[in-house]
Design a binder for these strands. Structure first.
Length: 298
DNA sequence: ATGTCAACCTGAGTGC
DNA sequence: TGCACTCAGGTTGACA
């Protein structure tokens, strides 16, 4: 499900419920998600305060007092919902439906509240269980296999046309595959790769090597692509991400960026590029759908 | 090194 | 209603 904009939206929603609060009780209702949950999961974290909740690529990282980092990945269907004590005592004020089928509520974080009675319950629900949680010593985080190979943040300063051209030079893969590779740039997925390529007017089948000139210097196409990726992600974050099928924010609300898709899931519809007049097509690369306009993407 | 495919798991949608 | 089939926002590991 979630690509960078959705993870960022979820993170912002969870921030007030988790950061600065003490984890009173941790309920793991099954032993595993995609991977086994951490050993002695509850025992190790209960009673400790979460100092911060950050994002790297599509991961959220909760840092606990004392130096442990809980790395969270939402997989395809992972989502969090938040309930406060007030909402619990006033049935109907909380939209539980947003959390999905309660059979898939796998992990519950019971957070201390601002008053003696208060408290916040943060529930992780994941029907397909492609998500996971890994506990790492904070000092080892950057070297952890999940983090070590990641490319730069697409919205950060390290991601620019020179970087992209250098990593693309000589590569035979197409642009779709290049951008899906988290080692090149971290956080894009199937939706935003299609959208960014369209915004850059670059065809998904174009060879990655054409982003670089000889001497591996960035071609103008690389500049265009970097700008398009940044703009697409920034717009998506501003819109609260995309809501497809059942993805929701932590507060149960929906994102709006799907209204702004230029190509994703629009096969057969008209290209929205002003003056283009093309028709959106769907192709399959490595088992995943790619949407593009054969007219204005070259 | 590159590229394809299957696997992980469940639910939603479609067509008969 | 039921059944069979396809597809889904991600990642990894096995192959050719």
């Amino acid at each position: 499900m979630p690509e960078l904009p959705e993870v960022e939206t979820v993170r912002l929603g969870l921030l007030p419920a988790l950061a600065g609060r003490r984890l009173v009780r941790l309920e793991a209702r099954r032993p595993d998600l995609r991977f086994p949950l951490p050993e002695r999961f509850a025992e190790r974290l209960e009673g400790r305060t979460i100092l911060s909740l950050e994002r790297r690529a599509k991961y959220m990282i909760a840092t606990f007092e004392g130096g442990d980092a809980l790395v969270l990945h939402l997989g395809m269907t992972g989502r969090f919902t938040i309930e406060t004590a007030v909402q619990r005592s006033a049935p109907g004020s909380y939209i539980y439906a947003a959390g999905g089928d309660p059979r898939h509520d796998h992990v519950v974080f019971h957070m201390a509240g601002d008053d003696s009675e208060g408290g916040v319950r943060v529930t992780y629900n994941d029907a397909r269980r492609f998500g996971f949680m890994v506990l790492v010593a904070e000092a080892d985080l950057d070297a952890h296999p999940l983090m070590a190979g990641l490319g730069p943040e697409p919205l950060g300063a390290a991601f620019d046309a020179s970087h992209l051209a250098r990593r693309a030079a000589g590569k035979k893969v197409n642009l779709k595959s290049l951008l899906m590779d988290q080692r090149i740039v971290a956080g894009l997925g199937n939706i935003y790769v299609s959208e960014a390529l369209h915004r850059a007017h670059l065809a998904p089948e174009r060879k990655a090597s054409t982003l670089a000139d000889k001497k591996d210097l960035p071609h103008e196409r690389a500049e265009r692509l970097v700008s398009a990726i940044r703009a697409t992600l920034a717009d998506a974050i501003a819109a609260g991400g995309s809501t497809l099928r059942d993805y929701r924010h932590a507060d149960g609300s929906q994102g709006a960026f799907q209204e702004s898709f230029f190509v994703y899931d629009r096969e057969g519809e008209a290209c929205r590029q002003p003056g283009c007049g093309g028709t959106i097509r769907r192709a399959v690369h490595t088992g995943r759908s790619t949407f593009y306009c054969p007219r204005c993407q070259r």
